[in-house]
Amino acid sequence: MANKYSLTVNGQKHEIESDPDTPLLYILRNDLKLKGTKFGCGGGVCGACTVIMDGLAIFSCDTPIWSIDDKKIETIEGISQDGIHPLQELLIDEQAGQCGYCLSGIIMKVKAITDDDPTKSVDDIANELDRNLCRCGSQLRILNAVKKYLDGKSSR
């Protein structure tokens, strides 16, 4: 049965009519056409679908729409609205990626962790990326970019 839900995505308010158990991922990708967030596993294990809800990183593939009514969502498209996010700049500098499919989820996860606690170390972040997978083997470059991002944050 379709219900009405209201959610704010990247600062914009949307009214959505949907079955309550529709995963947020499909609302973002297919209703709001925000395709930067990816489907990977559907079970909250690989992290490709990571977005930020009220400051917390969540897996949009297994988060039903009913649970996020009135919540604020931030996606990869949102963090570069006012120019490229510094973390993205550093990832580009490091050429951190091969196929790039996992990157938006990883970026959102790292942003959520570091926005919440800027004192985290790169090792802390590597541990917390336990449910963000990369198959091409770009982990080293991604962590190098994260390290520079943390250094930049602490010197600011």
Partner: peptide, 23 residues
């Protein structure tokens, strides 16, 4: 020379259209 990958920037920005994203 190490020129930057022509496709990677948009993949990092989340704007690259993968086959999955075709509409």
């Amino acid at each position: 020379k190490s020129i930057k990958r022509i496709d990677l920037k948009n993949k990092i920005l989340g704007t690259h259209e993968f086959v999955h994203d075709i509409e």
